[in-house]
């Protein structure tokens, strides 16, 4: 099978959209945080916690959407911790984020061991099943790729539209963007920068956790320790690649996922088999670095990103 054949197959694009979905959730979450001025490096740990929380909730008997809600709530709680330390206290967002990732990851692994002490392999749940959208999924070619996905994938794309709408078409979105560009102006309007930033970090972290939960509730049907595997860091690169804009970040995630789907398929070609498989596995991380380098000259970064705001300080 040559590359052209791969790139024109519906199965390939269906896989790319599936791989992109968790990245889209988490990238939107990070984007919300960063637009408000907070770099959230807790993303990796929050995704791990979300993946586990959603999965264990469903395993304990909640419906699948209940699992998504539990993951979202878990993410919001971790986000509240990040927000408290980084916004009103203005602590280093680098240190708080890395600390939160370490905390959330170890809390997750600990809880796993406490809840499931004697299992050698994690139990399976019944995950979200593909739901072909009547009509659209019958469009020849890409119709089946885009519209024979699980409901959680549709939710990911709906979220992009929602985030774009709120950010650019509502007073709330204006306030969030202003908090990331010029917090003093927000405060001068009588709004609380602290409240806006806290809210953004809490909600954004919720979406990161749902991105993690996508892995356990839709992409797979079980929880593994190294499941998230750096996806959080990749999402941070995707936010930069998307120039902090929801639509561009989504396109970036799809492009990225397409590369990922491609490398999996190239591994199975006769030429691909000659190349060490580790090189293929490196591609997502190498691409992320490349994306950061390519975008570095285009300075569209929110002006007050990583700058704490202390009222009364001039």
């Amino acid at each position: 099978m040559d590359i052209f054949e791969i790139l024109t197959s519906a199965a390939f694009w269906a896989a790319a959209i599936r791989i992109a979905s968790p990245l889209i959730f988490a990238t939107m979450g990070e984007l919300i945080c960063e637009r408000a001025g907070v770099l959230n490096l807790g993303i990796e740990g929050i995704m791990v916690a979300g993946a586990f929380a959603g999965w264990i909730a469903v395993y304990m008997g909640l419906p699948l959407w209940g699992g998504v809600a539990v993951a979202f709530a878990t993410g919001m709680m971790l986000g509240a911790l990040h927000g408290l330390l980084s916004v009103p206290f203005g602590l280093s967002q680098h240190v708080v984020g890395i600390g939160l990732t370490l905390l959330a990851t170890s809390l997750t692994f600990y809880t796993y061991r406490v809840v499931l002490p004697e299992v050698s392999s994690p139990p399976k749940i019944t995950a979200f099943q593909p739901y072909p959208i009547p009509g659209l999924s019958e469009i020849p070619g890409l119709g089946s790729a885009f519209f024979t996905q699980t409901p959680l994938t549709y939710a990911a794309f709906a979220l992009v539209a929602l985030v774009a709408f709120v950010l650019y078409r509502t007073p709330l979105g204006l306030a969030v963007r202003a908090a990331g560009e010029s917090p003093a102006a927000v405060a001068a309007q009588g709004l609380s920068v602290t409240a806006i930033r806290m809210g953004a970090v809490i909600v954004g972290s919720g979406f990161m956790a749902v991105g993690g939960a996508f892995l356990t509730l839709s992409a797979f049907d079980s929880f593994f320790f190294d499941m998230v595997n750096g996806r959080g860091w990749i999402c941070i690169a995707l936010v930069v690649f998307g120039a902090w804009k929801p639509g561009k970040a989504m396109l970036g995630a799809i492009l990225f996922a397409a590369f990922d789907a491609l490398q999996i398929r190239l591994q199975q070609t006769p030429i691909g088999a000659l190349v060490p498989y580790q090189l293929f596995l490196m591609m997502p991380y190498l691409l992320s670095i490349l994306a950061l380098v390519l975008m570095s000259r285009r300075a569209e970064v929110p002006a007050a990103l990583m700058v704490p705001f202390n009222k009364g300080e001039r």
């Binding site: 860091w233 690169a237 580790q278 490196m282 991380y285 950061l292 380098v293």
Partner: peptide, 19 residues
């Protein structure tokens, strides 16, 4: 280039371990 080193060093961890 002003590329944030947190993300690049983190990503390099994964790349180097695969290497």
């Amino acid at each position: 280039l002003g590329v944030d080193e947190v993300v690049t060093t983190l990503l390099l961890n994964y790349i180097f371990l695969l290497f």
